[in-house]
């Protein structure tokens, strides 16, 4: 970990850039298997996620997208009965190693859920919470700056700057989702995971989030699970198609949606799945 404690790193763009070069792999998954008790939900999946790119995970309901996504920040640890096998390397380090602190890991790999889940606190504290517990801010002024910067990046600042003390839950659904994204990026993650982040939003709020994803792409590795093929096509550069816990096809998003190689992918994206 190299979160530079005690310095106003958030205000210096060069420090918030991911450390690896363009196109490099941020996460490398090898032979991932996930079990819920006896039932296997993910079958030997190997794939990597490049920096500064959006990877979309698509596939029919129950195929294991959320399960696989949760492997990337060890959220499956919190599910009783769930067992993950295989290696997930970040910066050459296996995140499942015993000496990796899952709380720290989750600040490096932020997550945004289907239903916006702001803390029952003020808008300000929703953002300030993470930087505070991770010691990323040097005093109140610094914290203010982090809150503003994060809200600006999430495209929410103009809408909330005069009501920072209002509860996060007083915002609209789309605003809450952007608040959650602001909260995720406030702790300087390297990776942002999103599980159907727009499924409860109208087309305008969805467009705002998609614009935000496109903007965040220049500095993060983003993985998004979506049921909307059109959304996957709009926001991602790479698309992975899952079926029955298997990774069926992974490719350039353009190729997946105009000329998939696998019949199962073709059937799914064209609405022929039986």
């Amino acid at each position: 970990m190299d979160t530079t404690q005690g310095t106003p790193a958030m205000m210096d763009d060069t420090l918030t850039l991911p450390r690896s070069a363009d196109g490099a792999q941020r996460i490398d998954c090898r032979n991932i298997k996930v079990f819920y008790g006896q039932a296997q939900a993910i079958h030997d999946v190997s794939m990597s996620f490049p920096d500064r790119a959006v990877t979309a995970l698509i596939g029919p309901s129950g195929c294991g997208k959320s399960t696989f996504l949760r492997c990337l920040n060890r959220m499956n640890d919190t599910i009783e009965n769930c067992r993950v096998e295989g290696e997930i390397l970040m910066d050459g380090e296996n995140i499942n190693d015993e000496d990796v602190d899952p709380v720290l890991l989750r600040s490096r790999v932020g997550m945004v859920f289907q239903k916006p889940n702001p803390f029952p606190k003020s808008i300000y504290d929703n953002i300030a919470y993470g930087p505070r517990i991770h010691g990323l801010a040097n005093g109140r002024e610094d914290l203010d700056a982090i809150v503003e910067k994060s809200l600006r990046r999430a495209g929410l600042w103009e809408e909330v700057k005069d009501r920072l003390t209002a509860p996060g839950t007083s915002l609209s659904g789309g605003q809450q989702q952007r608040l959650c994204i602001a909260r995720a990026i406030a702790v300087q993650p390297e990776v942002i995971l999103m599980d159907e982040p727009c499924s409860a939003l109208d087309p305008i709020a969805t467009a705002r989030i998609e614009e935000l994803i496109d903007d965040l792409r220049s500095r993060y590795c983003i993985v998004i699970v979506t049921h909307s093929m059109q959304q996957a096509a709009r926001v991602s550069q790479r698309t992975a198609f899952f079926h029955l816990g298997n990774l069926v096809e992974l490719g350039d998003t353009n190729q997946i949606f105009t000329n998939p190689r696998e019949k199962r992918t073709e059937d799914y994206i064209t609405g022929r799945f039986g």
């Binding site: 059109q230 105009t258 000329n259 992918t265």
Partner: peptide, 9 residues
């Protein structure tokens, strides 16, 4: 219909 894949082509 927002065609995809072979349908789009």
């Amino acid at each position: 219909r927002q065609p995809m894949g072979h349908d789009l082509r």
